[in-house]
Nucleic acid binder design. Structure first.
Lengths: 237, 237
DNA sequence: GTCTATAATTCGATAGAC
DNA sequence: GTCTATCGAATTATAGAC
C-alpha cells in the first residue's frame, strides 16, 4: 500500500465520520439543527476541516442520498436473483427503496429540496449527477431484462427510463405522505403496479401502436431519461 | 376613507415598493444576490422594516409567484371569453402561463425550489396555500365547463384537478427547459394537448370504464387535487 | 502536497428603542 | 412602522502543521 493509498483510506474514514456525525443531528432537529459547527464538533474537527471534505452543507445531504442508492442497489440484487415475475420484481424493488428510506422520512423533504432545483449541480436530473442516476436507472433496466416479459420493440428502449420515472413518482408520493408510517404509500404501490402492468399490456394492442409512438417521441426531449448504452466492458470491477 | 384605510393603502404601496426593488436584484444575480439588505436599501428602508412586510425572504419569492397567478387569471379570462373549443382553450391557457413567466425563466428554479418542499408553508401543495392554488385550479375548471365538451360522469369531478396537474407538469418541463427562449416547451405543449384530448376520448370508451374508475380512485389520496365546492356566494367582489 | 485550525466576512433574522 | 444594533450560522481566506 502506497502512502497515497493510506491517506485516501484515512481521508475516506474522516469523510464517513463526518457523515456519521451529521445524520443523528439531522434526524434530531432537521436541516437547520444540523449545523456545520455541530457536525464538526461531533466529528472532532473544526468547521474549516469539515469544509475540506464537503464543499457545502448540501453536499452532505447528497452523500446521504448516495448512501441509500447503494443500499437500494444491494437490496434489489437479492430480489432480482430470486424473482422472475415482472410485476413482482417491480413491486418489490420499488417497495425496497421505501423500506430503506423509512427511517429518513422526516428529513426527506430536505433531501428532496436539493433535488428539485434543476440548476443545482446535485439535482438527480442534472448532468453532474449522471453517474448516480444511471446506477439507479440500471436497476430498473434489469427488472425488465431479467424478467419473462417482453414489450413491443419501440417501447423496449424507453422502458427502463419510464420505470425509473415511475419509481421517482412513488418517492415523490412518499415524501408527501403524512400518514402514520407512510401507510398510504404502501397502498399506492399496491394499486399502481397493476396499473403500470396494464399500460404495458395496452402498448401491445396493435391499434395503439400509432399513439404509442407519438407518446414515446415526447420522451426524446428528456436527455436524462436515456440510459447511456453500456460500452464494451473496459470498466474494472 | 378612514384613517385605517389610508394606512392600508400606504402599507400596500410600501409592500409593492419592496417587491419592485427585489425583482431586478433577483433577475440580476439570482436568489443569492437578492439579499434582504440590498432590497431594503433599494426600497429606501432598513432591513428590519422589510421584515415587517415579509416574514422571510421566501415570502418575497412567494409574492412573485402570486403576481403571475393573477396575471394568468386575467389572461385566461380573455381567452375563455372568445374561444369555446376545449382543446384550444386548454392550449392557449397553458401557453399563457408560459408567456407570462418567460421573463422570469432564469429565476424560476428558485421559485420552484420553495414549491418542492412538502413541509414548507409556501408549497403550492400545502394546506396553507390553498387559496392561491384553488384560484389557479378554478381557471382549469372553467376551461372545461365553458367548453362544448363533456366527459363521463366519474371523470367529470376530477377533470379540473387533472388539468391543473397537467399544467403543473408543463411548468415543470419549462423550468427544466434550457433551450433558447424555451422553445422546446412550446413544442411540448403542441404535442401533449392532443395527447390529453385523446386520453379523455379514451375515457369515453365503455370498455375502459373499469380501469378509469380504478385510476380515479387513486386520486382521492391527493387532497390538494380537490376543488372545494364553491359555497353559496357569500364572498364579495 | 495534503490536511487542519483560526479568523474574517456575509447574510438572514430578531429584539427593542423611537 | 421604522430604525439601530446584534445574533447565529454558512461560507471563505489564510496561514500553518504534518
Amino acid at each position: 500500500m502506497t502512502a497515497t493509498d493510506a491517506k485516501l483510506k484515512k481521508a475516506e474514514r474522516t469523510r464517513q465520520r463526518i457523515l456519521d456525525a451529521a445524520l443523528p443531528l439531522m434526524l434530531d432537529g432537521g436541516y437547520e439543527k444540523m449545523t456545520m459547527r455541530a457536525i464538526a464538533k461531533e466529528a472532532g474537527l473544526s468547521p474549516g476541516a469539515a469544509y475540506y471534505y464537503f464543499e457545502t452543507k448540501e453536499h452532505i445531504i447528497n452523500a446521504f442520498y448516495e448512501r441509500t442508492i447503494i443500499e437500494h442497489e444491494q437490496a434489489c440484487r437479492k430480489i432480482l436473483d430470486e424473482e422472475r415475475n415482472f410485476a413482482k420484481r417491480l413491486r418489490r424493488c420499488v417497495t425496497a427503496q421505501i423500506e430503506i428510506s423509512r427511517p429518513y422520512h422526516e428529513i426527506s423533504a430536505d433531501l428532496f429540496r436539493v433535488a428539485a432545483d434543476p440548476n443545482h449541480p446535485l439535482s438527480p436530473f442534472n448532468e453532474a449527477s449522471r453517474t448516480v442516476r444511471e446506477r439507479s436507472m440500471a436497476i430498473f433496466a434489469e427488472i425488465y431484462r431479467g424478467s419473462r416479459s417482453r414489450v413491443p420493440k419501440p417501447l423496449d428502449a424507453y422502458l427502463p427510463g419510464l420505470l425509473w420515472l415511475y419509481h421517482m413518482g412513488i418517492v415523490l408520493f412518499w415524501v408527501h405522505d403524512k400518514t402514520e408510517n407512510q401507510s398510504k404509500t404502501d397502498r399506492f404501490i399496491e394499486r399502481t403496479v397493476p396499473l403500470v402492468i396494464n399500460l404495458i399490456r395496452l402498448a401491445k394492442v396493435p391499434g395503439f401502436s400509432r399513439a404509442l409512438k407519438a407518446t414515446l417521441q415526447l420522451l426524446d426531449d428528456f436527455t436524462w431519461l436515456k440510459l447511456a448504452t453500456p460500452k464494451a466492458s473496459t470498466d474494472k470491477k
